[in-house]
């Protein structure tokens, strides 16, 4: 397996994440899209770590940090979603368009 195969896989993940973010209406599925993007970045880091990095520990540490931050991000986003849901009884991103102009 060559390096660019991994990069292309991660690119597909990234693009799929973008599609999810841009087209889905449910905020939870949009969060899924963001997770896909983060994973794409993680794959890149691991692949580069394996093939090009000077010190092969770096990539792993980076990916661990990313996993940790993703967990934190999800926690906060879901809690905000709870408030949103309580205030509106809806999590449709196309319905929350009151602030504009």
């Amino acid at each position: 397996m060559s390096l660019s195969a991994f990069l292309l896989v991660s690119l597909v993940l990234f693009s799929a994440g973008l599609v999810a973010i841009m087209s889905r209406r449910n905020l939870v599925t949009i969060l899924v899209g963001i997770e896909l993007m983060l994973n794409a970045a993680s794959i890149n880091f691991m692949a580069f770590n394996y093939y090009t990095a000077v010190d092969p520990v770096v990539g792993q540490i980076i990916v661990l940090v990313i996993i940790g931050l993703a967990a934190a991000e999800v926690a906060i986003f879901l809690s905000i979603l709870m408030v949103l849901y309580r205030a509106r009884h809806d999590v449709d991103v196309e319905e929350i368009r009151e602030i504009r102009g």
Binding site: A16, L18, M22, S23, R25, N26, Y85
Partner: peptide, 27 residues
């Protein structure tokens, strides 16, 4: 926790197509 979080939302074809075009451009 919130039933409607899980609710199946309307799936707009045109949105999917447009956003796919944007994403494929990037890809």
């Amino acid at each position: 926790l919130s039933v409607s979080l899980a609710k199946k939302m309307k799936h707009s074809e045109i949105k999917v197509i447009l956003s796919s075009i944007a994403a494929i451009l990037f890809l």
